[in-house]
Amino acid sequence: MIFEKLKPQVEFIISETNKPVDTRLIKICKLLEKHISYYNWVGFYFRNGGKEELILGPYIGEPTDHTVIPFGKGICGQVAVSNENFVVPDVSAQDNYIACSITVKAEIVIPIFVNGENIGQIDIDSNTPDPFTEADERFLEFVCEKVAGIL
Rank of each mutant, 00 (worst) to 15 (best):
V10P: 10
F12T: 08
I14M: 13
S15E: 02
E16S: 13
E16K: 15
E16G: 02
E16Q: 15
T17Y: 08
N18P: 00
N18Y: 12
P20Q: 12
V21N: 11
V21P: 08
V21K: 15
I26H: 01
I26N: 05
I26P: 02
I26E: 13
I26M: 05
K27A: 15
K27V: 00
I28S: 07
C29I: 10
C29L: 06
K30T: 14
K30E: 09
E33P: 00
E33S: 14
Y38V: 02
W41C: 05
W41K: 03
G43A: 13
F44K: 10
F46W: 11
N48A: 12
G50P: 01
K51C: 00
E52V: 00
E52L: 08
P58K: 10
P58A: 15
Y59T: 02
I60P: 00
I60Y: 06
I60L: 04
G61H: 02
G61T: 12
E62L: 10
P63A: 08
H66C: 04
H66A: 09
H66S: 08
V68M: 04
V68H: 10
I69P: 10
I69W: 13
G72R: 07
G72V: 08
G72Q: 07
G72D: 04
K73H: 10
G77W: 07
Q78T: 14
Q78K: 06
V79C: 05
V79L: 05
A80S: 07
V81I: 15
V81N: 00
S82T: 15
E84S: 11
V87P: 03
V88S: 04
D90L: 06
A93D: 07
Q94G: 00
Q94R: 14
Q94P: 00
Q94E: 14
I98V: 15
I98L: 15
A99W: 06
C100V: 02
C100F: 03
S101W: 07
S101L: 04
T103K: 12
T103H: 09
K105D: 01
E107T: 05
E107N: 07
I108K: 02
I108R: 06
I108F: 04
V109C: 14
P111A: 05
I112S: 01
F113C: 03
N115T: 03
N115Y: 06
G116Q: 09
E117V: 15
I119V: 15
G120C: 08
I122N: 01
I122V: 12
D123H: 04
D123T: 04
I124D: 02
D125V: 01
D125N: 11
N127A: 03
N127V: 03
T128V: 14
P129R: 10
P129E: 10
P129W: 08
P129D: 06
D130N: 15
P131G: 02
P131H: 09
A135G: 05
D136G: 11
D136W: 03
E137W: 00
E137A: 13
R138P: 00
R138A: 14
L140R: 07
E141R: 14
E141A: 09
V143A: 10
K146W: 01
A148M: 11
